[in-house]
Design a protein around this nucleic acid. Structure first.
Lengths: 171, 171
DNA sequence: TGATTTTAGTTTGACATCAAACTATATAGT
DNA sequence: ACTATATAGTTTGATGTCAAACTAAAATCA
């Protein structure tokens, strides 16, 4: 059986780097490799995150709770969908799940008959706290093993890539 | 309507950075921010990639074709699932879709009655070439706008994070 | 004011994905 | 050899997601 890191490397190398391929830009392989690493990290991080979440909380659910605590509640579904770059239907689904668990409270918007407003409940705040507590050991281990400076160095560059990708949408 | 980059920043800030939260490690916010950027980039990149793929080819489909060209075909489903870090069932599904389109050829493993072997067809090779041609403009634009050096700088650090996350699985 | 268009949210249908159960074959243990 | 266990692949049921169709309520405009 291959080691896990070998497996991951296998996937890294799985992406395009064929120098004989026509029309491949010089260094297109580099970009492929970066996006491939990002894809793997996203998957590994999500899996690990959800594995330790209390009550089977999923990443998008936590994300919404965290958003409501950090940036304040009384948010519309639209703004939440926009903030997380998911479709309206997806946010409808997420909000319904959170509401069914009593972690948020959804009410009609008093100023707009079409809209709704999302509030976090006390249970929702507690769940968000528990979630942060649950993931903290993994984050600490990661910070120790990888080095904090690596994360510091990488964040602004990722932001730059994200911002550019963001601007490239719908030209 | 908010600008798109404002929206993306909204999602960035949506993740944990609450300094008042108990048990939040010093700088836990940094790690959250990094993973959040990674999540957004993965989503934006996938969407953009699939939007230009010929014949509605999806990212996992392309990834398998590319893998078979770059690392050679005659692969088992197991090894493909392992390389891409997806479940066996997922790879069964992906392989069935590719085979139905005639892009790969799946045959029983002559040396193992349980196994199958996956081969890429000429149509599959052509599809992979077309896909690379289709995504190249976006990659070039990105490389120009962001700067090649940013990608060069970020790749080894992402690899490090990925490798550590990989090692952290199933201790 | 009345008609058109835009917007907020929901629903529907399709698809990728996963975990777990299942089948069939191979390997290990005795 | 016979039984146990492990492995390759498929299937099943659930979930998250999206795009597109749909409903209802603004906002625009003529």
């Amino acid at each position: 059986m291959l080691s896990r890191s070998t497996a991951a490397r296998g996937r890294v190398e799985a992406m395009a780097k064929d120098p004989s391929a026509p029309h491949t830009p010089q260094g297109g392989a580099l970009l492929f490799a970066v996006f491939n690493e990002i894809g793997i990290i996203e998957q590994l991080a999500r899996t690990r995150f959800e594995a330790v979440m209390p009550g089977g909380l999923l990443l998008p659910h936590f994300s919404v709770l965290n958003h409501l605590v950090r940036l304040g509640d009384n948010k519309s579904l639209k703004s939440l969908a926009f903030a997380f770059q998911v479709s309206k239907g997806t946010m409808t689904n997420t909000v319904q799940k959170l509401a069914a668990r009593g972690l948020i409270d959804v009410q009609p918007d008093p100023e707009d008959g079409r809209g709704k407003r999302v509030f976090i409940t006390q249970e929702g705040r507690q769940m968000r706290e528990d979630a942060i507590i649950a993931i903290t050991p993994a984050l600490q281990m990661l910070a120790e093993d990888v080095g904090f400076d690596t994360f510091e160095a990488v964040l602004p560059k990722l932001s730059r890539i994200r911002a550019t990708l963001d601007e490239m949408r719908n030209p």
